[in-house]
Amino acid sequence: MAAKDLRVLIVDDYATMRRILKSLLEQLGIKNVEEANDGVGALHKLQSSKFDLVISDWNMEPMSGLQLLKECRSDQHLKSIPFIMVTAESKTENVLVAKEAGVNNYIVKPFNAATLKSKIESVVGPLQ
C-alpha cells in the first residue's frame, strides 16, 4: 500500500508519545495522520471520518484503548479497521486479552522505528 495514501489515527493521552509516533510515521512516508488523546475522542473521529489504521495506547481515561478496540469491533463500519496497540502493558495476560478483543498487532513501549514499520506492514501490507 502506498504510504502517502494511508490515513492513520494515533490515540495516546501523552502528547509527547503522539508526537513521536507522528514523526516516525512521517519518516515512513505516512503524512496523513490524525490524533486523539483518548478512546472517546478517537471513536468520534473514527465514526465521522474514514481511516485505514488505528495506532492506540491502552492506558487512557475515560475510555481505554481496549474499550476503543471493542467499540470498533462491535461497530458495523469499524469492525474490520486495522488496529495496533502500542502500550507499556506487557503482561502476557494483557496481550491475550487484546488479541481476544480483536487487535491486529501489539507493540510494547519503548519500541524502535523498525518495530513500528514491521507491525504496520504486517497489518496493512508492505509500505511503498
Binding site: D12, Y14, T16, M17, I20, S23, L24, A88, K109, P110, F111, N112, A113
Partner: peptide, 10 residues
C-alpha cells in the same frame, strides 16, 4: 532520538 524519547511516557 525520537524513539528513545518515549522514555518520558514510561
Amino acid at each position: 532520538i525520537l524513539t528513545e524519547c518515549s522514555f518520558q511516557d514510561l
